[in-house]
Amino acid sequence: MVRRFIIKRLLIALLQLIGISIVVFFMIRLLPADPVARLVGFNASEEAVQQATESLGLHYSSGQQLLNYVGVFSVTGEPGIINGYLGKSWVTSEPILHEVTRFLPITLEMITYALILAFIIALPLGMSSATRPGGAADKFTFVWGLFAGSQPEFWWGILFVFIFFFALQQAGLPHAPAPLGRIDPLLDVPNSITGFILIDSLLRGRLDIFINAAHHLMLPVLTLVFVVSGPIVKMIRQNMIRVIRSDYILYARSAGLPPRKIALYALRAAMAPAMTLTAIIYGFLLGGAVPVELIYSIGGIGEYSIRSIISFDYPAIQGTVLVIAMVSLIIYLALDIVHAMLDPRITF
């Protein structure tokens, strides 16, 4: 059953990806932009423009360009996305796939840690504010949610840089590193294995890099946790309140189950919807963590996509959209499977 469901979902995802790439392909070309001018400058000669247009393949009709991009009936003879080739960047001439695989893990690493941490923090907080509505934990959550959610994350980012880097440094206290990347400029990023710098450095046995990178990741992750935890805590609190008042928890108490077991019963029922929310936030942050990436100069996929858009780098834009969509779909699928394992009422 499960296998059939996964295969079905993957096939649907494939169709979605094809749809997305076609839509994105045409939408970019609908923009009133001139990538050629961007490349050769506005005062370039007729021939230079002509040459640039041809080298970018823009002299073909839109339909032909799409075929070139997809890789069927391609006139250029180059492979297309069906061969797993996303094209070359018009700016750097590097294959898009290389660039994406370099930048994507950076963002993934940051938001994965942030969401795991947010969930770990939100769970006890949500539970304790549900078990004692109006108690200290509940009030704290309320104020926090109000505060954190009402300010944009780049503002918090700047504030955190100010407090934890600048102010603490001025005061001569231990402080966060300067927001200038994910590792000290004097150190080298270890060769990629997983792309996650903390994991790679451990795998390569470089504890110094690990500590340094963790130090650098601290503030960006903290900023994200600070902003996204609010809704997760609220979700867990709401679910928990509903569950605590449910007949089955009352019945569990009337059957004399030990408190630990009752807490597990409640947790199990309250967790599933919160996980869905977490995954939705994850999907959103893939492209939406740009402000945080920029403030801390992380150089992730968000920053890369902004750069591609500004420079009208069509293949790069198409590639990023496609890869982000793919990652989102995989995450949703994984989540649906986990959700179904938690809740037997969900059938495939």
Binding site: S246, D247, Y248, L250, Y251, A252, Y265, R268, A269, A272, L342, D343, P344, R345
Partner: peptide, 10 residues
């Protein structure tokens, strides 16, 4: 309500 008194996920 017997069905509500049973945990839905166990």
């Amino acid at each position: 309500n017997p069905r509500y008194s049973l945990h839905p996920m166990l």
